[in-house]
Design a protein around this nucleic acid. Structure first.
Lengths: 167, 167
DNA sequence: TTTTATTTTCAATAATTATTGAAAGTTTAG
DNA sequence: CTAAACTTTCAATAATTATTGAAAATAAAA
């Protein structure tokens, strides 16, 4: 396979996978592009490569910065902004985990806690509260595990995990 | 808060959270409803409670069955089908993890492997292949960790994790 | 300051995804 | 077998989400 063909396929595939996990396609493509770029890219570079509008580039680059996985970079002698993606994949994984935890898990815990204040003591109410409580417990456990994973080092984590589970 | 109000809020909230993670709103609401139901529900029950069409109920119940988190249940003397959700939340977590692994992680590994076959040996090609390779490594590690988590028991997993990381 | 380059916003529109509902398909009862 | 009960499918449509592009805002240069 030719390099350009492979790069293209990689960017397209990343975009369509993202779509199936509820992530904006363009956002994923911009990130994919920055990940394999050997130099910082400007908005124009991205517009041209991905064939998308300026507004779209702007919105999605901001979103990536917001996720903490892309940074602005100044190029001396240039007035416009350039962007780079952090190439450390373990850091990338940790950052995404941290954000998803904040965006997906923590809101669930908050809502579940808010709902626990049902006064009734009928069987039905008790069953409902049990579901909420069980959901809270599992969610809290998972949240705790992810917290640990975020703080851990890749090799250490994996080797410990392997040891742990080898029976 | 009144029970019905709390149930309603819970179902609505579950639906809107799901939306933000790329899961169909109705699918999440149907699951939420089944989780807190003390008895099996028919398509009519679901249609009526969530105010949605028969076709919509059918599609989303099938999807939940496909995810392995809802089952058909026969009620004696009744001709129509009833549905129940598995109430064991740790099992639910494991099942969802297993499915997301299959749907989100494994396709990534497949694609990354397919792209590695770039022939060029320029610096650019080498950098590209390094990104793919690093992505594969992290993805494989995470995949392995999730495999272990799926097989583990809740309390055992959490206590080991806590021990592991307590320094 | 004014001019020019650049970024941001956002209403309009396009593209995608979800939902309806009625027809077709299936299964069970009589 | 036929009729009735029930489930599934899917084209039409509604609802949602993403994208464009030009105007407004901002920042740097002259």
């Amino acid at each position: 396979m030719k390099l350009d063909e492979a790069k293209n396929k990689y960017i397209q595939t990343w975009g369509s996978l993202a779509t199936s996990w509820g992530i904006n396609k363009t956002m994923a493509q911009v990130h994919a592009l920055l990940l394999i770029s050997t130099k910082p890219l400007s908005a124009e570079d991205i517009m041209e490569t991905l064939q998308i509008s300026r507004g779209n580039v702007n919105m999605n680059v901001r979103a990536l910065i917001d996720w903490g996985i892309v940074q602005k970079e100044l190029v001396i002698g240039e007035r416009k902004e350039f962007f780079v993606a952090n190439k450390d994949m373990w850091e990338l994984f940790k950052q995404i985990t941290k954000e998803r935890k904040k965006r997906e898990i923590e809101p669930v815990l908050k809502i579940l806690a808010d709902l626990q204040i049902v006064e009734e003591t009928t069987d039905e109410a008790t069953a409902f509260k049990k579901v909420l409580n069980d959901l809270s417990k599992v969610t809290t456990t998972v949240n705790g595990i992810l917290d640990k994973a975020i703080k851990a080092d890749e090799h250490w984590l994996l080797s410990n995990f392997t040891k742990m589970v080898k029976k």
